[in-house]
Computed example of a mutant assay.
Amino acid sequence: MSLRRRIERSETLASVLAWLVGSYLALCNRTTRWHIEGQGDLRTALAQGPVLLVMWHSRSVMGALHWPVADGPLSSLYDASPIGRVSGALQRRVGLQSMQMSRHTSNLAASRIVLKRVREGVSIGMTGDGPLGPAHQVKDAPLEWARVTGVPVFCYAFATTRAKRLNTWDRMLVPRMFGRGAVVFARFEGAILRKPDEATREALREEMRRFMDATTAQADALISR
Rank of each mutant, 00 (worst) to 15 (best):
L173C: 07
L74W: 05
L20N: 08
P131S: 08
W19Q: 08
A182H: 04
P50D: 02
L25K: 09
T12Y: 10
R180I: 09
H35Q: 14
S81E: 10
V183W: 09
A14C: 02
L204I: 05
S102P: 08
D129C: 02
P196W: 06
E206K: 10
S111G: 14
R165A: 12
A45K: 05
R180C: 05
G88F: 05
A47Y: 05
H57D: 12
T215I: 10
A80W: 14
M101Y: 08
A18L: 08
A199D: 12
W169I: 12
A109H: 14
M62L: 15
R9Y: 04
S224W: 01
D79K: 12
K139G: 09
T215Q: 12
L42K: 00
A26C: 04
Y24S: 11
K195Q: 13
T216L: 03
V183G: 07
E198P: 00
P142G: 06
Q39V: 13
A163T: 03
F178K: 01
A141F: 13
D213G: 03
L3F: 14
P50C: 07
A217K: 07
R147V: 02
I124M: 04
E202M: 07
S106H: 04
R6V: 12
D79I: 12
Q100M: 15
A217C: 03
D79Y: 13
P50M: 03
G128W: 00
R162E: 11
V151F: 00
K195L: 11
L222E: 01
R209L: 05
V184E: 05
P175E: 01
Q48K: 15
V148E: 01
H104Q: 15
R119G: 00
V16A: 14
R147T: 03
L132Y: 02
A109P: 03
M212V: 09
L115W: 00
D213L: 13
W169Q: 11
G125P: 00
R6S: 15
L96E: 11
S102I: 11
S81L: 10
A203M: 10
N29P: 00
H35N: 03
A47K: 14
R201P: 01
G130P: 05
V69A: 15
W19Y: 06
P68L: 14
H57E: 08
